[in-house]
Amino acid sequence: MAPLTLTHQHLPGMSVIALAGEVDRTNSAQLADYVARIRRPGDHVIFDLAELSFLDSSGLHVLLACARTCADEGAAAHLAAAKGAPARLLRITGVDARLPTYVTTEHAIATVLATRTS
């Protein structure tokens, strides 16, 4: 299993969280803790999935929990740059139709910035 690596950056009105490696039941709590620690209340969260090679239902649960929290605060969780197995899981579960999904992280960031200024 590829270890999970998490990084983030704060931009105006959003937190961008990059996931690399694999998320499964052995480390999904690590992801949940990280999201809770760095997410700013009321901010959008963009999950950059470009370097994520595996995602299971426990990781999906973390993404959806974050989406609920964001929605409660008038923001949203966004998914960006998913490919391979994670993209397939998002597609077959319908999560990619439920959450805003973008081909690139840059597009997600630009969209959130545009909605904040309009």
Rank of each mutant, 00 (worst) to 15 (best):
G84N: 09
D72E: 15
R37V: 00
A97G: 03
A77I: 06
T93P: 12
I46E: 01
A77W: 03
H44K: 00
I46K: 02
E73Y: 01
A114N: 05
G59D: 07
S15N: 02
L60G: 07
P86M: 10
V45C: 07
G84Q: 11
M14E: 00
L4V: 07
L64P: 09
L63N: 02
L89P: 08
H8Y: 14
C66S: 11
R116L: 15
P3I: 12
T105Q: 11
R40G: 01
I17Q: 00
L99H: 01
S53A: 13
V16N: 01
L52C: 04
A65S: 13
G21H: 10
V45S: 00
P41N: 03
M1N: 02
R88M: 15
L99Q: 03
A29S: 12
P41W: 12
K83I: 11
P12N: 06
A114E: 12
I109T: 08
T26A: 13
L113P: 00
V112C: 08
C66A: 15
R39T: 13
G84T: 14
Y102I: 11
V103D: 09
L31E: 01
T101D: 01
S58N: 08
P41V: 09
T93I: 14
L99P: 08
V23M: 10
V103H: 09
A87L: 15
M1P: 12
T101Y: 06
A18H: 05
V103W: 04
V35Y: 01
V35F: 07
T7P: 09
P3M: 10
L113C: 00
L90F: 07
D33S: 10
G13L: 11
G13Q: 06
S58A: 13
A65I: 09
A82C: 06
D24I: 05
Y102K: 06
T104E: 07
A110R: 14
M14V: 03
R39M: 04
A81F: 14
E106G: 14
G59Q: 09
I38D: 00
G42C: 11
L19S: 00
P86G: 10
N27D: 06
R39N: 00
A87Y: 10
A110S: 12
D24V: 09
D48Y: 03
T117E: 15
I38A: 00
A20Q: 13
T101M: 11
A2E: 11
E73P: 07
G13Y: 02
A65C: 13
F54V: 04
H78E: 08
M1R: 06
E22P: 08
A71Y: 08
T117C: 11
I92P: 09
D56V: 10
G42Q: 04
A82M: 05
C70P: 07
A20P: 09
P86R: 12
Y34E: 00
L89Y: 02
S58H: 13
E22F: 06
L89K: 04
L113W: 02
G74E: 07
D56H: 05
S53M: 09
R39G: 02
Q9V: 11
R37A: 12
D48W: 05
T117A: 12
A76P: 03
L99W: 04
A81M: 12
A114W: 08
I109D: 01
I109K: 03
L55C: 08
P41H: 05
A114G: 06
R88P: 06
